[in-house]
Design a protein around this nucleic acid. Structure first.
Length: 486
RNA sequence: GGCCCCAUAGUCUAGCGGUCUAGGACGUCGCCCUCUCACGGCGAAAACAAGGGUUCAAGUCCCUUUGGGGUCACCA
């Protein structure tokens, strides 16, 4: 019965390198790793980079660094290799194509020549008449196969879609939630191969999981509604399904799915804000899992020893920074003085970081004793704006407008790859222009937000050294403060 | 809106039919310790979403409602 009883346990995480390393990735990675370790299994890291338009050059490395920083490591992956490689989906294009061809040959899939415009029209029409089902209308499903193959051979742009069954139910056996049934009428003919030849998540995920002999899929709850599509794919291929486990989603304070707009979400933020990696990891474990007794502080090894699925709770846990801070305090207090010193030296007091700060302050100090008071904001997380609250403003702009402006800058910086003084200045100037704010005023505002002082080293150099996460957090915090005032 | 998931205090959770006048933790408040602050110690307020069943017995099982969330892409 168990799809894995006879096979060695293999699990995976499959992050997509589209941005900053996400706490949710670490969260899911933790549960995968713990389960693998407990079962004497293997934990695989696979990079899902099939969307060229969203891929970011530095993102993949940041994922590795961030996961290692929290203390998670994998047995197989693009950077460490392994017998089931390549572990980067962009390097497996041929494999997906072959599998799509296989499905095509079996009549389990078909070519679709519909244009993006037509698809958009269909969707708009469905929405307009408030159709209960939104999805592809199977326009190309009836096409003659030989004819479709000919058009394809002639180079006509098209995608490959799964020919989902027209009737019946798809059953997902979730090990955390039990049997979940989906009516097949809710599932449309999912695209498997995009017109650029890259697979969609659905195809790549199923093909890779099978080829990499993944026995247990442990992923976030947001995937549960696409699981029937995956089940259908396993059936179409005639493969054995993995055991499904859908973990609850981390939440913002308002209970929505955790997002960078409402909560620091990058692992790098937690690092830069002075959280200890083991504390973060321990905290993530607490989000959805409990030790069994009242223990809240425990190591990875202890968790591995005590882990079981029935101690996972399914309500979406709110990521509570206060409780994380409390846990972090426990970890800090458990360090010896020497260890704490090392922790600091590995953090913002590292030689590496101080060397970045120095060009900004050397000209501004006359004696060494001035360094610490002058540079405090380089070593802080959140700032206290009470002393400058009155000056946190732009002439003739209401506080709410200033808040909005700050958030607009956050969005702007988000959209731009790279974080150095040059990029920041470009974006900063464009931002001020767009808002119609004099740079003098706009930049003083930013200076106050970022340093809580009226005098500082050059603004954009300061932001560059501060780093993306801390800067972003301060912009948001200040915006929130101003919005409250309004 | 269709489908799906979820439901114990503001938050994270224990509870797997009787031992629950519901336990722990964060946060909040009070007291103690104390040269200050912090730590620490002690204590307080604070929850089984609602309504129906099943049962001798329901926070625990079932149904409905309500609420929250997710998802409906050539993104993952």
């Amino acid at each position: 019965m168990s799809p894995s009883a006879d096979r060695p346990v293999r699990v995976r995480i499959a992050p997509s390198p589209t941005g900053d390393p996400h706490v949710g990735t670490a969260y899911i990675a933790l549960f995968n790793l713990v389960f693998a370790r407990q079962q004497g299994g293997t934990f695989v890291l696979r990079i899902e980079d099939t969307d060229q338009s969203r891929a970011r050059a530095d993102s993949e490395q940041m994922i590795y660094d961030a996961l290692r920083w929290v203390g998670l490591s994998w047995d197989e992956g693009p950077d460490v290799g392994g017998p089931f490689g390549p572990y980067r989906q962009s390097e497996r294009k041929d494999i997906y194509r072959q599998h799509a061809d296989l499905l095509l040959a079996r009549g389990e899939a078909y070519r679709c020549f519909c244009t993006a415009d037509r698809l958009a029209q269909v969707r708009a029409e469905q929405q307009a008449r408030k159709a209960s089902f939104l999805g592809y209308d199977r326009h190309c499903r009836g096409l003659d196969r030989a004819e479709a193959d000919r058009r394809s051979a002639e180079g006509e742009v098209h995608v490959v879609r799964l020919a989902a069954p027209l009737d019946g139910k798809v059953v997902v056996e979730d090990r955390l939630r039990g049997t979940v049934e989906f009516d097949v009428h809710q599932i449309d003919d999912q695209v498997l191969l995009k017109s650029d030849g890259m697979p969609t998540y659905h195809l790549a995920n199923v093909v890779d999981d099978h080829l990499m002999e993944i026995t247990h899929v442990i992923r976030a709850e947001e995937w549960i509604s696409s699981t029937p599509k995956h089940v259908l794919l396993y059936k179409a291929f005639g493969w054995q399904e993995p055991a499904w486990h859908h973990m609850p989603l981390l939440r913002n304070v308002d209970k929505s799915k955790i997002s960078k707009r409402k909560n620091p979400v990058s692992i790098n933020y937690y690092r830069d804000a002075g959280f200890l990696p083991h504390a973060l990891l321990n905290f993530l474990a607490l989000m959805g899992w409990s030790f069994g007794d009242d223990r809240e502080k425990f190591t990875l090894d202890e968790m591995v020893g005590a882990f079981s699925w029935d101690k996972v709770s399914l309500g979406g846990p709110v990521f509570d920074l206060d409780k994380l801070t409390w846990l972090n305090e426990k970890y800090v207090h458990d360090l010896s003085y020497e260890q704490l010193v090392d922790a600091l030296l590995g953090w913002r007091l590292s030689r590496q970081h101080l060397i970045k700060v120095m060009p900004l302050v050397r000209e501004r100090i006359k004696r060494l004793d001035e360094f610490v008071p002058l540079t405090e904001y380089f070593f802080s997380g959140d700032l206290d704006y009470t002393a400058v609250a009155g000056e946190l403003s732009v002439p003739d702009v209401a506080p709410a407008g200033v808040a909005q402006g700050l958030l607009a800058l956050v969005e702007k910086l988000e959209a731009r790859e790279g974080w150095d003084a040059k990029v920041l200045e470009e974006e900063g100037r464009a931002w001020a222009t767009e808002l119609g704010w004099k740079t003098k005023h706009a930049f003083m505002l930013l200076r106050l937000v970022v340093t809580a002082r009226k005098a500082s080293p050059p603004l954009f150099d300061t932001m560059a050294v501060l780093g993306k996460e801390v800067t972003r957090r301060r912009l948001r915090q200040a915006a929130e403060l101003l919005a409250r005032k309004a």
